[in-house]
């Protein structure tokens, strides 16, 4: 059976989405893409420079990689909508990652404004991937609003702290019909692997690769871990038991006495 990820009407082989921020040189990006195997890459519209030919990050993204512009810097739905429209008008396609953050302390997303932006943009034909806190009710509203996936955070953005919100992400995976893409907080390949084992559809990460000593090697490591986690999920993990199962001290007597 073929295992493909479908977002909107696009079929993807790779379940690792990556970012473009924080690199010491954008020239590293093609190598990172190659080694990660990513087919989707997110770029902040605020960083795109359509006039400067030499310092434009878009120069380093191969044409076969799908651009996922994001609304970094948007503080409310209205700003996110405007950024999305600017990105589409600039030729970046109709995919958009909604990021509405009005909290500069923890950079936590604003669920209410994100839902509003998603509703507007989905109606305008965008393929909307909203970044959210793993909140079931917000995720359900996003399904109704026309999102193409939901992207809950594993930990606050840029923290590399791993799947701190694991229980809540599991609920989204169990209850939401859309692909659940774990975005933000993933610090190690083992975190990504764990998210995939849980049944996440994909992982999106940037800091963990960009802030590694050797970002190219780390991109490769993540590629393997996401694939491993996905295969483990498909294979069906064995059940986990706290105690060994050699005997049944409490119910064993049922076999040893006469059954009447």
């Amino acid at each position: 059976m073929e295992d493909k990820l479908v977002i909107g009407d696009v079929v993807l082989e790779s379940r690792l989405f990556i970012g473009t921020g924080k690199y010491s040189d954008d020239k590293m990006i093609p190598k990172i893409i190659e080694k990660s195997g990513a087919q989707v890459i997110t770029v902040a519209l605020r960083r795109m420079d359509f006039e400067d030919k030499s310092e434009n990050v878009l120069n380093y993204i191969p044409k076969n990689v799908r651009l996922l512009p994001n609304t970094s810097g948007a503080r409310n739905a209205n700003e996110a909508v405007r950024i999305a429209r600017l990105a589409r008008a600039a030729g970046c396609g109709n995919w958009i990652k909604i990021e509405v953050i009005s909290d500069n302390k923890y950079l936590l997303p604003d669920g209410y404004e994100t839902i509003k932006a998603t509703e507007i943009l989905a109606k305008e034909g965008f393929v909307v991937l909203p970044y959210i806190s793993p909140d079931l009710m917000v995720a359900k509203s996003l399904v109704d609003a026309g999102a193409a996936a939901v992207m809950p955070l594993g930990a606050p953005i840029g923290t590399n702290r791993g799947l701190k919100t694991k229980e809540l992400i599991q609920i989204l995976i169990d209850e939401i019909s859309l692909p659940v893409i774990v975005d933000a907080g993933i610090g190690k390949p083992s975190d990504a692997c764990e998210a995939m084992e849980m049944g996440a559809a994909a992982c999106l990460l940037n800091t963990a690769i960009a802030s590694a000593e050797d970002p190219v090697l780390m991109a490769e490591a993540f590629s393997h871990s996401v694939k491993a986690g996905r295969k483990a999920y498909l294979a069906g993990l064995g059940s986990v038991s706290k105690y060994a199962n050699a005997s049944s001290p409490l119910t064993g007597f049922l076999d040893s006495i006469e059954n009447c």
């Binding site: 605020r46 960083r47 310092e55 810097g73 405007r82």
Partner: peptide, 16 residues
């Protein structure tokens, strides 16, 4: 800046 292994960023906002 490049020589120090850092990227000089010219644009980090887009008037909306």
């Amino acid at each position: 800046i490049y020589k120090r292994g850092y990227q000089p960023v010219f644009k980090d906002w887009h008037a909306i």
